[in-house]
Protein backbone atom coordinates (compact mmCIF):
# COMPACT_ATOMS: atom_id res chain seq x y z
CA UNK A 1 0.00 0.00 0.00
CA UNK A 2 1.07 3.56 -0.71
CA UNK A 3 1.80 5.71 2.32
CA UNK A 4 2.60 9.37 2.48
CA UNK A 5 4.96 10.12 5.30
CA UNK A 6 5.12 13.73 6.23
CA UNK A 7 8.07 14.68 8.41
CA UNK A 8 9.12 17.90 10.02
CA UNK A 9 12.89 18.11 10.24
CA UNK A 10 15.39 20.62 11.54
CA UNK A 11 16.45 22.91 8.76
CA UNK A 12 20.14 21.98 8.97
CA UNK A 13 22.74 20.78 6.49
CA UNK A 14 23.04 17.00 6.27
CA UNK A 15 19.48 16.20 7.33
CA UNK A 16 18.33 15.28 3.83
CA UNK A 17 21.40 13.06 3.42
CA UNK A 18 20.61 11.46 6.76
CA UNK A 19 17.02 10.70 5.86
CA UNK A 20 17.84 9.50 2.34
CA UNK A 21 20.79 7.49 3.67
CA UNK A 22 18.59 5.75 6.24
CA UNK A 23 16.21 4.66 3.48
CA UNK A 24 19.11 3.28 1.44
CA UNK A 25 20.83 1.58 4.39
CA UNK A 26 17.64 -0.15 5.49
CA UNK A 27 16.59 -1.08 1.97
CA UNK A 28 13.35 0.92 2.03
CA UNK A 29 12.17 2.27 -1.31
CA UNK A 30 11.31 5.92 -1.80
CA UNK A 31 8.63 6.47 -4.42
CA UNK A 32 8.93 10.24 -4.27
CA UNK A 33 10.45 12.84 -2.01
CA UNK A 34 9.66 16.54 -1.74
CA UNK A 35 11.54 18.91 0.53
CA UNK A 36 10.74 22.50 1.26
CA UNK A 37 10.61 25.23 3.85
CA UNK A 38 7.75 25.74 6.26
CA UNK A 39 6.43 28.85 7.95
CA UNK A 40 9.02 28.27 10.67
CA UNK A 41 12.51 29.00 9.32
CA UNK A 42 14.00 26.43 11.74
CA UNK A 43 11.99 23.59 10.21
CA UNK A 44 11.65 21.97 6.80
CA UNK A 45 9.03 19.52 5.69
CA UNK A 46 9.94 16.35 3.86
CA UNK A 47 7.11 14.48 2.25
CA UNK A 48 8.07 10.95 1.40
CA UNK A 49 5.91 8.53 -0.52
CA UNK A 50 6.66 4.92 0.34
CA UNK A 51 5.15 1.73 -0.97
CA UNK A 52 5.19 -1.22 1.36
CA UNK A 53 3.15 -3.38 3.68
CA UNK A 54 2.15 -2.05 7.08
CA UNK A 55 5.09 -3.69 8.82
CA UNK A 56 7.61 -2.04 6.50
CA UNK A 57 5.95 1.35 6.75
CA UNK A 58 5.83 1.10 10.54
CA UNK A 59 9.59 0.48 10.55
CA UNK A 60 10.11 3.42 8.18
CA UNK A 61 8.19 5.64 10.55
CA UNK A 62 10.05 4.44 13.64
CA UNK A 63 13.43 4.70 12.00
CA UNK A 64 12.61 8.25 10.88
CA UNK A 65 11.58 9.15 14.42
CA UNK A 66 14.90 7.81 15.65
CA UNK A 67 16.85 10.37 13.65
CA UNK A 68 17.63 13.16 16.11
CA UNK A 69 16.99 15.99 13.63
CA UNK A 70 13.57 14.61 12.71
CA UNK A 71 11.07 16.43 14.87
CA UNK A 72 7.73 14.93 13.85
CA UNK A 73 6.53 12.09 11.68
CA UNK A 74 3.00 11.58 10.37
CA UNK A 75 1.92 8.59 8.35
CA UNK A 76 -1.08 9.13 6.09
CA UNK A 77 -2.91 6.52 4.13
CA UNK A 78 -3.29 7.95 0.67
CA UNK A 79 -7.08 8.34 0.86
CA UNK A 80 -7.05 10.44 4.01
CA UNK A 81 -5.12 13.43 2.76
CA UNK A 82 -4.93 16.23 0.35
CA UNK A 83 -1.91 15.12 -1.65
CA UNK A 84 -0.74 17.12 -4.64
CA UNK A 85 2.16 17.13 -7.04
CA UNK A 86 3.24 20.13 -9.06
CA UNK A 87 4.06 19.42 -12.67
CA UNK A 88 5.54 21.49 -15.47
CA UNK A 89 5.05 20.08 -18.93
CA UNK A 90 6.25 21.24 -22.30
CA UNK A 91 3.89 19.91 -24.94
CA UNK A 92 4.03 20.12 -28.71
CA UNK A 93 1.30 22.59 -29.76
CA UNK A 94 1.33 23.68 -33.41
CA UNK A 95 -1.27 26.39 -34.22
CA UNK A 96 -3.85 23.90 -35.56
CA UNK A 97 -3.74 21.80 -32.34
CA UNK A 98 -3.45 24.66 -29.94
CA UNK A 99 -7.18 25.14 -29.24
CA UNK A 100 -7.57 21.44 -28.35
CA UNK A 101 -4.64 21.60 -25.99
CA UNK A 102 -5.80 24.79 -24.34
CA UNK A 103 -9.20 23.17 -23.84
CA UNK A 104 -7.51 20.25 -22.13
CA UNK A 105 -5.56 22.60 -19.89
CA UNK A 106 -8.78 24.36 -19.01
CA UNK A 107 -10.52 21.07 -18.27
CA UNK A 108 -7.75 19.97 -15.92
CA UNK A 109 -7.61 23.41 -14.28
CA UNK A 110 -4.04 23.87 -15.41
CA UNK A 111 -2.27 27.03 -16.34
CA UNK A 112 -0.27 27.97 -19.42
CA UNK A 113 2.92 29.51 -18.10
CA UNK A 114 4.89 30.02 -21.31
CA UNK A 115 4.17 29.98 -25.01
CA UNK A 116 6.59 29.30 -27.85
CA UNK A 117 6.12 28.94 -31.59
CA UNK A 118 5.70 25.18 -31.48
CA UNK A 119 5.28 24.46 -27.78
CA UNK A 120 3.33 25.57 -24.76
CA UNK A 121 4.44 25.07 -21.18
CA UNK A 122 1.70 24.01 -18.80
CA UNK A 123 1.67 24.04 -15.03
CA UNK A 124 -0.62 21.67 -13.20
CA UNK A 125 -0.93 21.04 -9.47
CA UNK A 126 -3.19 18.19 -8.51
CA UNK A 127 -3.38 14.61 -7.35
CA UNK A 128 -1.17 11.97 -8.91
CA UNK A 129 -4.16 10.44 -10.74
CA UNK A 130 -5.12 13.77 -12.32
CA UNK A 131 -1.55 14.39 -13.35
CA UNK A 132 -1.27 10.92 -14.88
CA UNK A 133 -4.53 11.46 -16.74
CA UNK A 134 -3.34 14.79 -18.08
CA UNK A 135 -0.07 13.26 -19.23
CA UNK A 136 -1.95 10.53 -21.09
CA UNK A 137 -4.24 13.10 -22.68
CA UNK A 138 -1.27 15.13 -23.90
CA UNK A 139 0.91 12.25 -25.00
CA UNK A 140 -0.55 12.04 -28.53
CA UNK A 141 0.52 15.66 -29.20
CA UNK A 142 4.11 14.95 -28.20
CA UNK A 143 5.55 15.76 -24.77
CA UNK A 144 8.93 17.41 -25.03
CA UNK A 145 9.79 17.83 -21.37
CA UNK A 146 8.25 17.04 -18.06
CA UNK A 147 9.19 17.83 -14.47
CA UNK A 148 7.36 16.88 -11.27
CA UNK A 149 7.99 17.80 -7.66
CA UNK A 150 6.93 14.69 -5.85
CA UNK A 151 3.94 14.70 -3.56
CA UNK A 152 3.32 17.18 -0.78
CA UNK A 153 0.49 16.43 1.57
CA UNK A 154 -1.56 17.60 4.50
CA UNK A 155 -4.30 15.94 6.48
CA UNK A 156 -7.68 16.97 5.25
CA UNK A 157 -10.14 18.44 7.75
CA UNK A 158 -12.30 15.88 9.53
CA UNK A 159 -10.17 13.08 8.21
CA UNK A 160 -8.09 10.93 10.49
CA UNK A 161 -4.41 10.28 10.49
CA UNK A 162 -3.24 6.71 10.87
CA UNK A 163 -0.58 7.72 13.32
CA UNK A 164 0.32 11.10 14.57
CA UNK A 165 3.36 10.72 16.71
CA UNK A 166 4.14 14.01 18.27
Amino acid sequence: MKHIISTLVQNKPGVLAHVAGMFAARAFNIDSLAVGRTDDPALSRMTIVVIGDDKVVEQVRKQLEKIIDVVKVQDFAIKDVIAHDLMLMCVHAPPEKRPEILALVEMFKGKVVDIGQKFVMVELADTEEKLEAFIEACRPYGIKNLARTGTVAMAGFERTEIADNQ
Partner: peptide, 14 residues
Protein backbone atom coordinates in the same frame (compact mmCIF):
# COMPACT_ATOMS: atom_id res chain seq x y z
CA UNK B 1 33.61 12.17 8.33
CA UNK B 2 30.04 13.16 9.17
CA UNK B 3 29.06 11.71 5.79
CA UNK B 4 31.14 8.59 6.38
CA UNK B 5 29.75 7.92 9.85
CA UNK B 6 26.13 8.96 9.35
CA UNK B 7 24.74 5.43 9.39
CA UNK B 8 27.03 4.18 12.17
CA UNK B 9 26.39 6.93 14.71
CA UNK B 10 23.37 7.68 16.81
CA UNK B 11 23.96 11.28 15.81
CA UNK B 12 26.72 13.36 14.32
CA UNK B 13 27.38 16.99 13.58
CA UNK B 14 29.93 19.42 12.29
Amino acid sequence: ITGVTRSITKHNMI
